[in-house]
Design a protein around this nucleic acid. Sequence first.
RNA 1: GGAGCCGUAGUUCAGCUGGUUAGAACGCUUGACUGUCACUCAAGAGGUCGCGAGUUCGAAUCUCGUCGGUUCCGCCA
Length: 597
Amino acid sequence: MQFTKRTNTCGELELADSGKRVSLNGWVSQVRDLGGVIFVNLRDRYGVTQLTIPSENKQVYDIAKSLGLEYVISATGIVQKRSSANPNMKTGEVEVLAEIIEILNVSETTPFVVEEEVKASEELRWKYRYLDLRRKKIADNLVLRSKVYQIVHRYFERENFVEIETPILMKSTPEGARDYLVPSRVHKGKFYALPQSPQTYKQILMVSGMDKYVQICKCFRDEDLRADRQPEFTQIDLEMSFVEEKDVFKVVEGVICDIWKEAAGIELNTPFKIMSYDEAMQAFGSDKPDLRVKGEMKIVNITDTVKNTEFKVFNDAISQKGIVAGIKLTAQEVSRKIIDSLTDYVKTLKFGGLGYIKYNADGSSASPMLKFLNDEIQSGIKKDFDANPGDVVFILSGEKKKVLSALGNLRLKLAEMFNLIDETKYEFVWINNFPIFGFEESDNSFYAEHHAFTMPNTEDMAKLDNGYKNPKENIEDLLSIRATCYDLVCNGNEFGSGSIRIHRSDIQQKVFSVLDLTKDQQEEKFGFLLDAFKFGAPPHGGFALGFDRIIAILCGTKDIRETIAFPKTTSAVGLMDSCPSIVEEKQLKELGISINS
RNA sequence: GGAGCCGUAGUUCAGCUGGUUAGAACGCUUGACUGUCACUCAAGAGGUCGCGAGUUCGAAUCUCGUCGGUUCCGCCA
């Protein structure tokens, strides 16, 4: 099919182009028919340009009259200055006086109107994603994504990294997230797994001597989703030999700085802050603290202050080794309604209620729980929080982890409610010194917090040496061992995580011993990796950055679906192509699979 | 796996404590209009109130179930 190809895009014509004869190709985004003259807004991914069609040119005028929204057309004409410019449009000073309009394709009435401030529900937008992507805002997200891709590649090329593709079809491992499985036709009853991350491959590449590996790769995890979690997502995955933690920090900070500088025009300060896991949990109730909150709003532990109280709620918590802690909201008017909604919120987290004390302007204080607290304790609390008239403190009691994390969430809720987040900032922070082990009370066993190959901190090695032979008798000690394991956090989002790995089998065996893995289990779970490690594994460590989240932040959204061309719903369904779907009986037969229920 | 919110015209929503023919805006169709840019104006078409039970003389409205979307908890080494 022949048509007049564009000489320009719809986003670039300006006054200086006046008098030029141009051709534009694009989609009809708006038609304004005034009777004697028709204005058409023509859209492509670069912008919008106004076409003007006066009635004098009968042939073009009749074509213009027949145009519907989202028709694809080619328009040719002379660029001219508008008699009244539109300051809201980038090309608003000019218009194209159309001499020829070719309709390249018609469009049915779309399920929703393609406009920047789209009214359609997300469900509809995912289903007709190609229409959604015609909106500049979403298209720009993909363009930015592409740009960051190139920045990342350039950075790692310059830093002498080797980009190596690792398999998509790999061995299933029972550790970590649930695998997406791919049945084998050749080996009936056997399955490949899609990678949750290329973790084992990149470590083996270190054994290979590929001392700087990087890959922008897809990862797959069959777990329940959130606004910032998709079943398939993209990572900037890297691994290096002969490095320690600070070397990894430096490389990651380098690529982040390049991205911010080149994609957003922002110079970030390095090195980034470093905060231990313990500090983050104690002060912010989260391992991904948002440091943009004005006045910080740190959590205050008042367990000591209230330890002698008769107040049953606090008493019960403390006697069960729990804590009493709170946060202070500085100088804000807090209504009954807000307290009710916060109370409802903590109830969903299985707290009985939310304690609060309002410090009034006249020096008095108001709270349903004051009557249970004597004067000494009341003034102790006031002192702990450094509370002044106008402030409100919120208090929770119970199991330590639960209290801290709930207060961490309250902190974010309050910050949002009272506009305490500085949206112009990017607050990066490394969180390190995570615990290496966790302990599951229900089955009386240790598990690896990060993964089984995370190197313990050098200072804590003695605790491992002492404890590994009789783990159950050294629970406290073993749980206090810190790992050389770190997360990068930006504005309360986990951007990625990594660790220095264990490369020596003596240390590895001690860790396995704590995790209660027999030789057979080790062999079954990680055999090939352990085999590789027998032949001279260098010290190594790495990191994986969540690419989608980085793009989301740069796009000013928390929803990574806005940065992915074809995202899935929270139930992992692709609404556009209706996947997953049933397959033909014949396919199942070839795979030796039968479906129950 | 658990909890909350949502589901009414093509779209976004309104529809009070159950009660004649379920409304508005945008979009769509037709017509008028020569400088609009959310053009304006006039007329019109358009509904399985997500689906299924139940309560009731009567259900968009109340109850239960179910499906879908979304948020949170669990989960995500």
